[in-house]
Structure formats: C-alpha cells, structure tokens
Write a protein that binds this DNA or RNA. Sequence first.
DNA 1: AAGACGGGGCA
DNA 2: TGCCCAGTCTT
Length: 356
Amino acid sequence: MTDFGAPGQTTAPHELPALRRALLEWFDASGRELPWRAGPEGGRDPYRVWVAEILLQQTQVARGLGYYERFLDAFPDVHALAAAPEAEVLKAWEGCGYYARARNLRRAAQIVAAQGFPGSSEGWLALPGVGPYTAAAISSLAHGEAKAVNDGNVRRVLSRLSAQPAPTERWVQARADALLDPARPGAWNEALMDLGATVCTPRAPRCGLCPLAAFCAARASGDPAAYPAPKVRAAVQERRAVALLIGDAQEAVLERRTGRLLGGLMGLPAEEVGAGESPRQALERLCARLHVQAGPLLGQVVHTMTHRRIVLEVVRGHALPAARLSAQPVAKAALSRLDQKALALVAQRQDSLFVL
DNA sequence: AAGACGGGGCA
DNA sequence: TGCCCAGTCTT
C-alpha cells in the first residue's frame, strides 16, 4: 500500500503519467554520461554496475569516478577480483573510506565466481555488502527488474515533491515504489538520482531547471531547501592515541589493523590512550608490546572523520635486540589518511633538518 | 532503533 | 564549522 499521508501534498493518480514523462524526458536529454552506464538500458554489465554501486555508497559521484577507473583497471572482471589478495583490493580502495565495502566486495566476488551472478534482487541481497539500495539498483539496471531505489537523492527529491519534512524509510520506499515507471525501471532510478545530484541539490536547489517543478509541493511552499529537515547526528567523539615510527617515510614498521575502524588497512603501530590514562602510559604499553625503545616526539597529527576526531602523537621508535620487526615499503601498503598524515610528519621533519 | 564506519566537497 | 554523499552491518 502507498501512504500518501499528511502533511505532504500528494501526487494525484492522474498526474502520474505526466510526472513520469517529464522526468524521463529530462533524463533522456540531460542525464549524466557515466562510465558504468555503458550498455543497453536495463541490460548493463552486472560486474561494472555492481562495482560502481558499492563504490558510490556514501561517496559522491565526482569522487567515485577516479576510484572506479582505478579499480576496474586492477580487477577487470569478477574472477580477477575473486583471485586477488585482500591487501591488493584494499590498496586499490586506499583513501576511499568505508573499507568494509572493499572487503565485502572481494568476499562476494568469490561467491559469484563460484556460483555465477545472481539473477534477481533477492539473489543480490544475499551477497555481503549488498543491501536494499544496491540490490534494487543492480537488478533494475542490469536485469530490468522493477525495483525502486531508495538513497539519499531519492529521499530528498520525494521529501520535497510532497513537502514531507521528516520522511521515514518506509514512507520513502512506498513513494518510490508508487512512482517507479515499470516500463523503464533502470532509467527511472537513474533519473531520480541524477535529478537529486544535479538539480534538486541539498542546498540551493535549482528549481528553475527542474522538470518536476510543477509537481513539487516544496517549491510551492517557497522554501524547498527546508525539505527534508536535517537529521540529528551523534556528536564526534575525540580519541587520543600514540604511534611509533620505526624507520622512515619510505620504509617503516607497519601493522595490519584488525578492528572495525580501518580494519584491514596497514598503519603505524599504535595504542589508544585509555580513559584516565596518560599518553606516556599508552606509549609504555606500546613499547613493551613491540620491544621498542621510544625516542623523541616527532609531532602530533589531528585527523577528523565523520564520527570521531583522533589526536595522534607520533614518537620515534628504535627496535631493541628482542624485537622481531621488519620495515616494509610504505608505498606498497594500503594506508588510511591518518597514517599518511603521520608519515608526512617525518618527511617534513627531514626537510627541516636540512634547513638546520 | 541506534551506532559504527572514511573522507572530501561545499556554503 | 556543519552537513551531506547512489548505505550496510552490528548491537
């Protein structure tokens, strides 16, 4: 059932054909040309669509483009991806964030390499890293299945169309399902997302260019940017940590991170400063674990992520005889921006030593 | 139903 | 500085 409830205006059923026509005509004339859009409408290459959809999760298209090129170059088909070591896949993903996407994509590729590509959205949904959005996107684009996507663009466009300030997931999905053009589901989904990305933007929507302006309740309200209302977000929490640089900016001792945060990436050996603990105590713990002698403080790095702010003290370390450590080429390892900043600290310091 | 999970772009 | 981005998984 569809919930056309208050407070939003609704799209009257008799307007639906005109609305669909307006958006699809706009899309056919003004839709974006993107590398993963090669091939027939509703019959795209599933691997290319899949990689693009994973890459674009919480990632803007402009940023995804470069990674897409790089990733497909490294792993041209699902078999190449399935056969690749995780470290290589993460290296191709380096800097893109949300690294679980890369780990899940590789794991799913191994399933697909063994069993073949799924043929329906339910099949896609069963793969790791594929949720409701991605399953609907791939099945509509590659198989022509009539599944409506629900992403940030769709949420914003539909919120505005109905002047619904606080749309729930259920509401958005129901509206998206009702509007979906069953004759061209893939094009419809792309059209809605293109509209959200290029015209119905979060701030300063360009209503003068919008093919749906005549249908839009938020536009009629005079303040379209007010829809949807901003989400409340958790405050960023600050964490402190200490790291050891053993080696230099080119060759250093690196550890593989295993937690949820930056899991699978390499980085300088580090310990978090616990609650009620001093950085010195964390450093002693770190040195004891690695059998390393601490040298001078090299500097401090501050790195802000969406959900946390990390203050990292970087200390030079010297391996003691008991240590079993080996430096490795930094350029070969997949590093987070945090560790890249920490290493940049030393590179700069070497420069300044020349000046001295 | 909430949190956790990266990083960059833009006003 | 704050908000957002072709979301998903875990608790």
